[in-house]
């Protein structure tokens, strides 16, 4: 399992990449592996205001559907439209082309996010 050290993580298996005042969000290598073949991704509406921990997207594999939570408070700026045709990108490139959405965020929540090392312990605990 790969957990890039430059990313931040949540206990619910999302990752966050900070690009200035924008946060890019996806699901971790651990999460995509646990889900199995992703076949459908339901993404939030652009412009939607979200609270930290709010369910905002759904990733469906052959076997199951899994809620994706906003890692921070803020507003959805953009969603990865490539996933509607190629949901398997979530499996193939969870930290790259398989990103889910970008959001403007309230930086006060940043301290709640986990480092790669901290997240690794969460993932190992199952």
């Amino acid at each position: 399992m790969d957990y890039p050290s430059e990313l931040k993580y949540t206990k619910t298996h999302e990752w966050v990449r900070l690009e200035g005042d924008v946060a890019v969000v996806g699901i971790t290598d651990f999460a995509q592996d646990a889900l199995g073949d992703v076949v459908y991704v339901e993404l939030p509406a652009v412009g939607r205001k979200v609270a930290a921990g709010e369910a905002v997207a759904v990733v469906e594999s052959v076997k199951t559907a899994s809620d994706i939570y906003a890692p921070l408070e803020g507003e959805i700026l953009e969603v990865n439209s490539a996933l509607s045709d190629k949901p398997e990108l979530v499996n193939q490139s969870p930290y790259g082309e398989g990103w889910l959405f970008k959001m403007r965020f309230n930086p006060s929540g940043l301290s709640e996010l986990l480092s790669a090392l901290e997240y690794q312990k969460v993932a190992q605990a199952g």
Binding site: G36, D37, S61
Partner: peptide
């Protein structure tokens, strides 16, 4: 349940 991938 699966070995590598249900789809494969």
């Amino acid at each position: 349940l699966q070995y590598a991938s249900i789809t494969a």
